[in-house]
Simulated scan of single mutants.
Amino acid sequence: MIGRRVTHRMADGIRVPGTWRPVFIRNGDYHLTDLFIYADGLIDCWELVTLEQFEEKLRCGWVATELPDGARASGHELAAWKFSEPHTWLTPELLLAEVRDTVDQLNGRPDSTDRCLDAVDAFLADRTEEKRAVARAAYLAIPETQRHYALGDMDRKDWPLQVLVAGPGGRTESRPYGGDDPVTQEEYDEAVDYFEDRAQWIAERSSRVPADGPVTPFAPAIQLYESYPLKTSDDPDTRALRNNYPAPLDIDGVTYPSVAHAYWALSTDDPEVRAVIAEADTAAAARNMAVGAPRREGWEQARTAVMTRLLRAKFAQHPALARVLLDTDDATIVYDDGDSRFWGDNAGRGRNWTGRLLELVRSELHAERAGIGPTATA
């Protein structure tokens, strides 16, 4: 199962997704290490191998599923120990089956659990013994270590599934409280009811609209590329959302030519430098003037709050620009800033704080329009 363990490797410039899990490698002693599994079917266990080569390493015990009592082991120079009465759950067959399932999952293909549940659906639609046998074979094809998770039900685990594929009078693989009694008609009827309820729940879940709206934006992302020079326009496009766009704003009685001018002026505690920055011909010149000036104490911790205030002022004082921002709907705003990986996305290498704050201010403008902002009255 992939879970949260997500990684990748690059192959011929292509990003190949992958995941990893712990295993023991026997190379003289036993070594606890990571087994990396990739979507193209290659496995990294101290070297990249194919699934067939990995199977050979399993069969010969180089990738170890049996841990002998008294054998020495180590883990990444963190610790060394000897096994004492070790117990393992995996066999070479089980581990190989789990790895094959993982490759299917990485590729978005049905794995053994999906194939089993499809066979169960086919049986429920046409309840013949032939189709029950197919469903039972598909259940047994799920790695034993993964069967408990097949239904995603941590209370009943896979018990309803076992009962359904066994049928009345049949034998299950295990019982929750032990014993090997055959399946009763009552147990079977309960299992059928369980799957019918489960099918209804899945259908309702797939059609349910999240109460708080979609998780991902429905509008395509907007990238605000760096562009020079920027000039005021009667019909501005998204370039007007950039901080160096000429949009004079009043902050504490001082007029600045742009957000960038105001930001760099407020970054210094030297009043004379601040006044010179406010008169700079371009935003780039304002930045260059600020570079050598002393920073305000605590500026690094306060700068996002300052930028938020400046963006709010820009769009409050320029309704036409506010409409440009509102017209971006719920799109992700990707802001490029060649001078700062803090403020810019910069091909995924930056933090994109300007883009994130533009989205925040946009949400505030939407709230104000809808009358549901913090100042709205009930």
Rank of each mutant, 00 (worst) to 15 (best):
R369F: 03
G373W: 04
T50S: 15
R100K: 15
R198V: 03
V16P: 03
E77N: 14
V163Q: 04
A73V: 14
G18Q: 04
T255E: 15
A191G: 07
F83V: 05
W343F: 10
L266M: 13
L78P: 00
L32R: 15
S206K: 14
F342A: 05
D34E: 11
E98W: 03
R175I: 02
A378R: 12
A119T: 04
N352A: 11
R147A: 03
F123E: 02
P143M: 01
T282E: 08
D234L: 12
A247C: 06
A137V: 00
E297V: 10
A260S: 14
P92F: 03
V306H: 06
R341H: 15
D155S: 08
L357C: 03
V361D: 02
Y177P: 00
E55D: 14
A122N: 13
R296C: 09
A64V: 05
S206M: 12
S174M: 09
Q162K: 04
V23Y: 12
I251P: 00
A133S: 11
I251H: 08
N107H: 02
D281M: 06
A221H: 08
R349T: 15
D121P: 01
V306Y: 09
D270S: 11
E85Q: 12
R132G: 04
G350L: 09
D111W: 07
I333L: 15
G108N: 05
T50V: 08
M10N: 13
